[in-house]
């Protein structure tokens, strides 16, 4: 794995202040100031926990930190994270206000690899999975085409974190009615397959559709996957995903994996808040 896809993390976790919280429809963007940390690579992730009152929520959880792909990193050492309050961890994090603090460890994992010469990056995101595509777009610039899918209009407000995205919604309230993969097929039909490189992150069924489509058309794809994680740095062996090379720890070998490595992107046990 090339070194430029992995920025090493400082050892241990650090306490960082939240400097801004804002809502985009169904999503919250938390901005924190990580002055002790290095600049992450697009696609890397962090383990986050509220510094206070982590625990004692629904079912007396959360207990473990939660993994979040970095949404954006600024030259002023701000890290931005996108979240949707769906379980005890994301609810607690989503309730944090400016001035409160996070425990943060990372950056972890390996990020996206740049497209081969002559290939045009197509960024395909679904739901909260759009997060790593924003920092990747920041780096690639506006040559990258961005296609995003959401459930409905409230979720589609999240698209504002990226620039110039084409949208699809399940209910047709914004953009194309249907799947983001419909948009991907259109784009690929307009591009020579030999000149496209796909980067995708989103819910497992979406990723699986992207994987199958790219495999069929011979388009290289990198998928940022999700898996239940306890530690984020290879300690627990809890985050494995099945690949053609056997189980791999997603926090160590991913979260970005070459689609070719996967027989399926339908990872057991994902989507649990």
């Amino acid at each position: 794995m090339s070194a430029d896809r992995r920025t090493l993390a400082p050892f241990g976790r650090r306490r960082v202040p939240i400097v801004d919280r804002c809502e985009y429809g169904s999503y919250v963007v938390l901005r924190c100031l990580d002055e002790a940390g290095p600049a992450p690579r697009p696609g890397q992730f962090y383990m986050l926990a509220a510094a206070e009152a982590w625990g004692g929520g629904e079912g007396e959880r959360p207990f473990l930190p939660r993994a979040f792909s970095v949404l954006r990193a600024t030259p002023e050492s701000e890290l931005h994270f996108l979240l949707e309050a769906v379980g005890p961890g994301t609810k607690r994090l989503g309730a944090l206000a400016e001035g409160e603090e996070l425990w943060l460890a990372g950056p972890f994992g390996v990020g996206f690899a740049p497209p081969a010469e002559q290939r045009r990056p197509l960024l395909v995101g679904g739901g909260v999975g759009i997060a790593p595509l924003a920092i990747w777009q920041d780096e690639l610039g506006l040559d990258a085409t961005v296609l995003l899918g959401f459930r409905d209009a409230a979720h589609a407000e999240g698209a504002a974190v990226l620039a110039e995205a084409r949208l699809a919604t399940d209910d047709g309230s914004v953009g194309h009615r249907g799947l983001v993969t419909d948009l991907l097929i259109q784009e690929l039909d307009h591009t020579d397959d030999a000149r496209a490189a796909v980067y995708a992150c989103g819910p497992p069924p979406m990723l699986e559709a992207v994987r199958a489509l790219c495999a069929e058309r011979g388009v290289p794809a990198q998928l940022a996957l999700e898996s239940g994680m306890a530690c984020g740095y290879g300690a627990c062996f809890g985050c494995v995903v099945p690949t053609r090379a056997g189980y791999v720890r997603l926090c160590l070998e991913g979260p970005v994996l070459d689609a070719e490595l996967l027989e399926t992107a339908l990872i057991p046990g994902t989507g649990h808040g």
Partner: peptide
């Protein structure tokens, strides 16, 4: 090791079925 999922968070802890990979 065991097939995933391998982790479940509980109140103040977790259950693992890593399976000694």
């Amino acid at each position: 090791g065991n097939p995933p999922p391998r982790l479940w968070e509980v109140a103040g802890g977790l259950i693992n079925s890593i399976g000694l990979p």
